[in-house]
């Protein structure tokens, strides 16, 4: 799908990124911004190089808590989405609860999780899970709820059971919604794990940044941000590839790609 794109379109992401870094670097010099306020990209790169081992270790920790929390969210979200899409009664019962639950800022839940599970790994996983399952549930349920009534009639008239309609139409239909929601969910999962790490953990990028802040190592804080951005981009990209692989039929339009 990419091979036909004009060269400028293919180069654009790199050019824009380089332009951003150059403007950033130049502004720091031109406006004489002190490094402890906003370090230039070169200083961030140097911090990245100097501290690559702790950054690497803590990134792995953050990545693992995020991915485990995300995996839980996928499993639970898929299941709950199917249940909600299956029955109007369950939908009516659970939906208000879900909205209320989703409205709670997850930062506020971390102290409770720490109370139950101590600091470190478990609260980070659970925060990632709690923050990322909602979009999955909503999307799966939406996919199921938008089955064309005519098609349902055609199948029902043939004697199709509810399970038949779910299997043949509902679930395949909701897959694009599901895979689409994974991109949102993985990004949120990082938010969850980093929040928990910065509040209650001795490991992880969140914790690393907190310590760097305490020691006034501002370039290291930014290096932590860059590490998070890299992880986030890689995982988002992985989800996007997965989405395209699994539900290519739903993305036939050249509009979004062009």
């Amino acid at each position: 799908m990419n091979q036909r794109l004009p060269i400028m379109v293919r180069l654009a992401p790199w050019l824009f990124t380089i332009a951003l870094l150059v403007i950033w670097e130049a502004s720091v010099y031109i406006f004489k911004i002190p490094t402890f306020f906003l370090p230039p990209p070169t200083a961030v790169a140097k911090a990245f190089y100097d501290y690559w081992w702790p950054i690497y270790n803590n990134s792995l920790f953050t990545l693992s808590t995020t991915l485990i929390g995300f995996a839980l969210a996928v499993g639970f979200g898929l299941l709950l989405g199917l249940v909600i899409g299956w029955s109007r009664t369950i939908y009516a019962g659970i939906y208000p609860l879900m909205i209320g639950f989703n409205a709670i800022p997850k930062v506020a839940v971390v102290p409770i999780l720490v109370l139950w599970f101590g600091i470190g790994f478990v609260p980070a996983v659970l925060t990632a899970f709690l923050i990322s399952f909602f979009p999955i549930v909503v999307n799966v349920a939406t996919g199921l709820a938008t089955i064309e009534p005519e098609l349902e009639d055609v199948l029902k008239a043939l004697g199709a059971s509810k399970l038949d309609i779910m299997r043949k139409v509902g679930i395949p239909r909701s897959l694009p919604y599901f895979f689409g929601s994974l991109k949102v969910a993985i990004t949120l999962a990082f938010v969850g794990s980093v929040i928990s790490e910065s509040i209650a953990s001795n490991y992880g990028i969140g914790n690393l940044m907190l310590q760097a802040q305490a020691q006034f190592q501002v370039p290291l804080i930014f290096a932590g941000l860059v590490a998070l951005a890299i992880e986030g981009i890689v995982m988002y990209w992985a989800m996007a590839v997965l989405e395209r692989r699994m539900t290519g039929w739903a993305q036939r339009s050249g509009f979004a790609q062009g």
Binding site: E148, K168, P172, W249, A250
Partner: peptide, 13 residues
């Protein structure tokens, strides 16, 4: 009985 409606409702996948 077989049924057809105004919308073809074919499954896109």
């Amino acid at each position: 009985a077989g049924m057809a409606f105004q919308a073809p409702t074919l499954l896109p996948w």
